[in-house]
Amino acid sequence: MSQSLLEEVKNRDQVFSFLRPAEQPALNVDKQILLYLEGLSVSFDGFQAINDLNLYVRDGELRCIIGPNGAGKTTMMDIITGKTRPDSGSAWFGQTINLLDLDEPAIAQAGIGRKFQKPTVFEFLSVWENLELSMPSPRAVFSVLRAKLDGEQRDRIEEVLTLIALQEQRESRAGSLSHGQKQWLEIGMLLMQQPRLLLVDEPVAGMTHQEMDRTAELLISLAGRHSVVVVEHDMDFVRQLAGRDRTVTVLHQGSVLAEGSMEQVQNDRRVIEVYLGE
């Protein structure tokens, strides 16, 4: 080790490798799979929240995940976004990016966006500012200090404002929005981020039926360009999202209970048992 370090220092024709920032490998989805979760397990104080979970999300897919309370849905999102470390297993973003090596900001910058269960926006800032901060741009402190919006970025914010129907509220404090509007703003912030993978935790909680329909439409329109993983309790909404041919995954006690189209899943005997009891 010390020998190699010495050689390294003696080699003066390039920057020492320990001074070079670790380079993030580019996303690679050659195999059409964007997210690999394999053999994940995590327990909190003896409670097995995730138990040998295996899940693959295809590039551009819209995937619905359902499951009773405590099935590990939110914990799974916590692992993908770097908030929780699993006890064992692996999580890869594409074939090259090991999610378990990265922390939350690095994972966000790699292209994974997350919407929380409870709408989480920056209440004190205006709608416009909320979107501005979500924009993909250098995140280092000094770049942020000097950052200015250019015309293209303004157009992008306008575009998202229109999409989430908050043009009129652009100058309002996000804290003054209604619950549904906050949900939309948070979705808008995710759209600004332009992530490759969107994790959406219960997006329609507290929304009216109309708003639900619009949310479903929006999420469906996003699939293709982005991969979208939706965790939801509301069965009508999941039915609407999954349609006939999209995959639905049922989680139970921290692992995958069933996977298939909505119809298959609904007729699966084990799923019925878990949901209805025996």
């Binding site: 908030k83 690095a106 966000a108 800032l125 501005e132 942020v144 950052a147 981020q193």
Partner: peptide
């Protein structure tokens, strides 16, 4: 500056700011 808005964002919703990168 935008850093000031990030400060306020951190103050009010720290984990949100983290998940934004």
């Amino acid at each position: 500056s935008r850093l000031g808005r990030v400060c306020v964002a951190v103050r009010d919703a720290e984990s949100r700011a983290r998940f934004l990168g």
